[in-house]
């Protein structure tokens, strides 16, 4: 049973997928709690299962076994539609490849989750969010014309625009050079500190690892250190 002060709770979670060679266990017996306003950083080698773990915690995928509780809701008995409702407006994402809508401008991209959640004053809130990441001057610039660093700033503005309870970030600096990556990390942690958002971050970067409240190390689908 999830405790009230837990943002995310995983109990003996496993994930198995079917491959041409038979079933493959990606995650094995993972138990993990994330408190509200905590910053948890997950590290692991490629193929260790950290992205799968992030997906399960965010409700993007369903566990094969065990129990995942997100924001007090047990995801085990929820279908995709219900999990979407849980995420809407309360969960933010920052991806390694930014995943902005090409052809749309920065403001439209930031407005996307606000409008999805039917939040009023979407454009004002989106403009404020862009201001927070220092891109107010490029609100009407098409995202295709922005640099990699600027695109990730738009993605961060989009993630924080709904004032999410929890933010999931998957290698947010993976596609950026060291200097830009550091700036993006600073910005993300700064906004997180301001808003008190829970942060779950997957990374390879040692520097980012040190900035979390807690580090989790993964190997072959298991938690090595918590």
């Amino acid at each position: 049973m999830a405790e009230n002060n837990l943002c995310i709770a995983l109990k003996q979670v496993g994930k198995t997928v079917n491959t041409p060679d038979g079933e493959l266990d990606i995650l094995n017996n993972i138990s993990l709690d994330v408190k509200y306003q905590e910053a948890v950083v997950i590290k692991g080698a490629s193929g260790s299962g950290k992205t799968t773990l992030l997906g399960l915690m965010a409700g993007l995928d369903q566990a094969s076994s065990g129990e995942v509780v997100l924001l007090g809701q047990n995801l085990a008995d929820k279908n995709e539609e219900q999990r979407s409702s849980i995420r809407a407006g309360k969960v933010g994402f920052v991806f390694q490849s930014f995943h902005l809508v090409k052809g749309a401008n920065a403001l439209q991209n930031v407005m996307l989750p606000l409008e999805l959640g039917a939040i009023e004053n979407a454009s004002e809130l989106a403009a404020t969010s862009l201001q927070q990441v220092g891109l107010e001057a490029k609100a009407y610039t098409q995202v295709d014309h922005l640099s990699g660093g600027e695109q990730q700033r738009v993605a961060i503005a989009r993630a924080f625009a709904t004032r999410p309870t929890v933010l999931f970030a998957d290698e947010p600096t993976g596609n950026l050079d060291a200097t830009t990556g550091r700036q993006i990390a600073d910005l993300m942690f700064h906004l997180r500190d301001q808003s008190g958002t829970t942060l779950v971050l997957v990374t390879h970067e040692e520097e980012l690892l040190q900035r979390g409240d807690r580090q989790i190390l993964m190997e072959s689908g298991r938690l090595l250190a918590n």
């Binding site: 993007l60 979407s84 995420r87 969960v91 995943h99 809508v101 996307l112 999805l116 959640g117």
Partner: peptide, 16 residues
Amino acid sequence: EVESSLLRALGAHTSQ
């Protein structure tokens, strides 16, 4: 497909 997946992640419903 990629865009629909993104919208799903951001909380979009099937009807949307």
